[in-house]
Design a binder for these strands. Structure first.
Lengths: 247, 247
DNA sequence: CGTGATGTTGATCAGACTCAAGGGAGGTGG
DNA sequence: CCACCTCCCTTGAGTCTGATCAACATCACG
């Protein structure tokens, strides 16, 4: 059972608390935010480039990704979102979407009306700051991915991505003993890392051979966090977590 | 003479107006924001990873870049900032910097105290929204760069970057007849594009040979915008400019 | 048990890196 | 005003990471 899945608001708060500290009154206000829960199949776009949504979506269960296509049809996944994340919080202030968002596994999401968020932000400036901060952390993650794709090789990049996922999932309680679910295909990983799927396959084999990860179906096991961290040139600083140095 | 260089606030407003529409009262408030002007040499970091600045910097003249290094010392430039931009607006809500910012040419910048910005945001929620929006557009640009670096080849990437610069410079009045100044070395371009400087050199030669750009010293001439746009697989949508379809 | 999606493997090719060396152009000091 | 020095740009050659193409194996699932 996914932590907090019956309480969308609780999950959202838990996530936000990893990067922000709320007062009780603010938490209460967040708890009262109406959220409409919906279940989606994989590859069923949540929003698409050019859309003008009037709501944000909160991931409750499963993974989703933000992606863009080149005119040649090549896909780059720019971010993976895990339970507790709000992938399209930006739509609050950017009318038209410059990205598409799709579940990569069957996904439960909660929709939150922009108007509700706006009212909340007006009444509680610190909540506005928290949401703003959340979008800034997203930006920071994009920058780290840019460094990753631009200046690290595929092996390192993949190790780095695994590190990031481990930390972010841990922050919302979805990791136990270095084990977490990663319901994603190698082709999707390739799109996230910016390689071909064939090469992705070989990189994963190399990582397994080096004892950095084990996989059991869709489960990922990280036997030696320090080793993976080093292989991935990973420093969680860019995630701007409140309690730094997690794990 | 750079447009508005004697009036930092005017330049800032002009830039913000490319993505937001202000009321007169709000503009007046922005005009009264105290800005302390300073001149910097190239390569003299403005802020560094880990810093906890109490001010933002507004670019007034020259270019600056945001960059990160891998542990191997490879540099990735994640963004280029032109006059009117505020590269570290994020520092308003992210205490510690996850990036470094350096001028790539001699640069005039204006420093704005966080406290002043915060007061402004409290009194004028729409100004807060404008600044928030500004950071979101930055995020959108990072995503486009990620697509660029991850899924386009060097030639296309470079053409794309030139397109972006043309549009952004035009928005603040720094382009005339397809000509603009680009005081940047090939090595720096390489770091922005994610290639080696040797390869960058060859890419530029190819672009020149194909008649997509001409260079005269630090001046860039774009003789055929449509051709460059196509070569760069460029669509300005991601810049979220108010008056879309510029040029 | 068939079918489509996913993962795996081999072979070949190309874009881009590295190393190394030489050529300009602009600034500084004598 | 010239000599020099330092960046920066340019070119060539060899190498490597990773792409592409093409099978084939596996697995989940109806």
């Amino acid at each position: 059972m996914i932590a907090g899945s019956h309480f969308p608001n609780t999950l959202m708060i838990r996530k936000l608390e990893t990067i922000f500290t709320f007062a009780d009154e603010e938490k209460q206000a967040l708890l009262n935010l109406p959220i409409q829960v919906i279940t989606l199949k994989a590859d069923q776009d949540i929003v698409r480039v050019g859309d003008r949504p009037s709501q944000c979506c909160l991931i409750l269960e499963g993974f989703s990704c933000v992606y863009k296509l080149t005119s040649e049809g090549k896909r780059q996944i720019m971010a993976l979102y895990v339970p507790g994340d709000i992938p399209d919080l930006q739509s609050l202030h950017l009318k038209a979407m410059d990205i598409s968002i799709a579940p990569i596994s069957p996904c439960t999401v909660g929709f939150i009306q922009h108007d509700d968020v706006r009212h909340l932000c007006e009444r509680y400036p610190r909540i506005a700051a928290a949401f703003w901060r959340e979008t800034l952390v997203d930006g920071s993650i994009f920058r780290e991915w840019l460094l990753n794709v631009g200046r690290r090789e595929a092996y390192t990049r993949m190790a780095h991505l695994l590190c990031e996922l481990l930390i972010r999932l841990k922050a919302v309680g979805l990791v136990e003993g270095g084990i977490f679910d990663l319901p994603i295909t190698q082709a999707e990983l390739a799109d996230a890392i910016g390689t071909s799927s064939v090469h992705m396959n070989r990189v994963l084999q190399a990582l397994r051979a080096d004892g950095l990860v084990q996989t059991k179906g869709k489960q990922v096991i990280v036997p030696d966090w320090e080793k993976l961290k080093e292989a991935g040139d990973f420093d969680p600083f860019y995630l701007h977590l409140e309690e730094a140095g997690v794990v």
